[in-house]
Design a protein around this nucleic acid. Structure first.
Lengths: 340, 340
DNA sequence: GCGTTTTTTTGAATCGTTTCATTGTTACGA
DNA sequence: TCGTAACAATGAAACGATTCAAAAAAACGC
């Protein structure tokens, strides 16, 4: 009574062979209407639930896809996870989610776990440099797609967003609304994303001979880090204040905004325009709604799944690196100052 | 060459029996040092990775625990997930995470999927009323623990946080710092959490004969909803403004704060004190750091795993409903007004 | 009614582990 | 040297699904 019913129990109960039950489950139209109904009734009566381990053992692979992200709490990844799950569901797969929390050890554990589970493939936003480990996976025939990181196309497929283009968009927007003394606020430029966004901003500024770009280093990417940069700016005389600030991420921008608005000495956007990056939910509901650069996260997740499917299907894998273009979202924080 | 090595291959390669390889994997000290090393070397050379499906088929259950949450993007659940994962890892289990997104259909899919995977048990923060489905699970012998929802103790174990106590704490703190004209801001009271928090606040207010509590309904639980409640308050004359506001969640509180500070007519905490609920990351970095009620989310996740283990181990399950007490976090937004 | 084709059903073999009764080996005291 | 106990290693059986060649049943044409 305690043991869950097996396919054999169902077969007995419906007076058919086990093969027939399996066919009802997997190829319903190979089975005549009458017996199909009989089998379905038996399944229902016994409360049969297919044992996926047995199925998997026989067919050699699972119906799941592993997904390892750096931080589920980060809205960027949350959105990627959602869209990947949806895309996977459409093709009949489920997603096993792992949160490495930027920890290489946890990441390694998940990779091992997913291998033991014989996932169909792996989507990963890797912690630092894991090419060795990923090479191993490749040798063992686990198709892998890198997420939010460009990959050597001879080895892996990847999906990412063009941060250089995003940086350009943001700076170009500030310039287009008449600002000329720009500042970039961003954490350590050793982070690829930060460096690329800065590079894009530089490119835009070079297009206007009379424009300048100042780089303000921040301690990390948090609201508090933004606040201290903002405090520093407030100290300066009004004449030395930039008239357009581009922050490497929305949290920084919100921090800067808090500093500037708290003192009531500077107005946003009249005295200084402010734009962030990521377009997090808080951006729209900030004290002054924040302009930002939105990344097509849904597309990222969906495309990652698609690339993985391609690799799974084709024996002879040709890798692709897909790069998406981010999008400018204009809100009040960069509204053009009154003419004159 | 393409196929991954099996335990049999390892056995051949190391010139031992398959049982010995299995023992090396599962009971290393049943095997002599010499052969153990030999087997380990073979495993390494062949790149053997245990096939968990086969293992599971034999032993009858997996090493994974299913966890279905309402929204991974919600910091509350993110934290629960993390701690559950850590606790599970300690006892050698892994967590399969499902995000129902408040959608009963997705929830049902995950329940089915997890059943097919023969998870050891299920932690679930259910969408609406799923007692029927959960009853089914119970009959099929899948131990289940409800998260953030009290359960009929005759049927399930559960972990939750005492929202009534949290509401009391918040209101009591406002009263203790001298406020008497309190307001509660909260979404539809059909949400259990909101209703309980309000109830707790009422209890505290009744303790002070000269204190009053006004209930301000909000449209949902977002920053924007908080803003519109705040705007409404600003319209009122100063005399009619409450001197202490308790919001059912931090997002609401941040919205109210934005309204009040933007107009520069009221100061927080001098004119009005403000306290939220959940202690999200943004609370500490708000314009005026926000007091809040912290829920022991790490403890929730860990305890859920422990309760589940209890059910798994004992044949004769005795269910427990564990309720945690939330904690007051005092910050500047409720600092006592200057004496006099 | 009979031979032929098509459709349905059958059930043994298989996947890769773990388990455990059995056999083989070693160590040790008398 | 022998008997016995402790320890190691063995390998067949089992888990529950899918697969597929073969058998059985049904449908068809004449």
């Amino acid at each position: 009574m305690n043991r869950t019913a097996s396919i054999k129990d169902v077969a007995t109960h419906a007076s058919v062979a086990v093969g027939t039950v399996s066919n009802v489950l997997n190829y319903p139209d190979r089975v005549s209407e009458r017996t199909r109904e009989r089998v379905l009734r038996a399944i229902d009566e016994l409360g049969f639930v297919r044992n996926d381990a047995a199925r998997q053992l026989r067919v050699g692979h699972s119906r799941t896809i592993g997904l390892i992200v750096l931080d589920v709490g980060n809205p960027f990844f949350t959105s990627v996870v959602r869209s990947a799950e949806d895309a996977a569901a459409l093709q009949g797969s489920a997603v096993l989610l792992g949160d490495s929390g930027h920890d290489a050890g946890r990441e390694a554990n998940y990779i091992d776990l997913f291998q033991e589970q014989r996932v169909q493939g792996l989507l990963i936003s890797p912690v630092g440099d894991v090419t060795d480990r990923l090479d191993l996976l490749r040798e063992r025939g686990v198709p892998t797609v890198l997420v939010d990181r460009l990959a050597d196309e001879s080895k892996f497929s990847s999906v990412a967003v063009d941060d250089d283009a995003g940086g350009y968009l943001a700076a170009r927007h500030l310039l287009d609304t008449g600002r000329r003394r720009l500042a970039f606020v961003g954490g350590p430029t050793s982070i690829r994303q930060v460096a690329d966004r800065l590079e894009g901003a530089r490119r835009a500024v070079k297009e206007e001979p009379d424009a300048t770009l100042e780089v303000l280093d921040s301690e990390g990417q948090t609201v508090l880090a933004g606040r201290s940069v903002g405090d520093m700016l407030v100290q300066r005389g009004r004449a030395e204040l930039p008239d357009g600030i581009f922050c490497a991420n929305d949290l920084l921008a919100l921090g800067v905004m808090q500093s500037l608005t708290m003192t009531h000495t500077f107005r946003i956007p009249e005295d200084v325009a402010l734009i962030g990056y990521d377009d997090i939910d808080f951006a729209v509901s900030a004290v002054v709604p924040l302009s930002s650069i939105r990344q097509p996260t849904e597309l990222l997740g969906r495309t990652a799944i698609e690339l993985l499917s391609e690799e799974v299907e084709s024996q002879n894998p040709v890798h692709r690196a897909v790069v998406f273009t981010p999008e400018l979202v204009v809100r009040q924080s960069t509204a053009a100052p009154a003419a004159g």
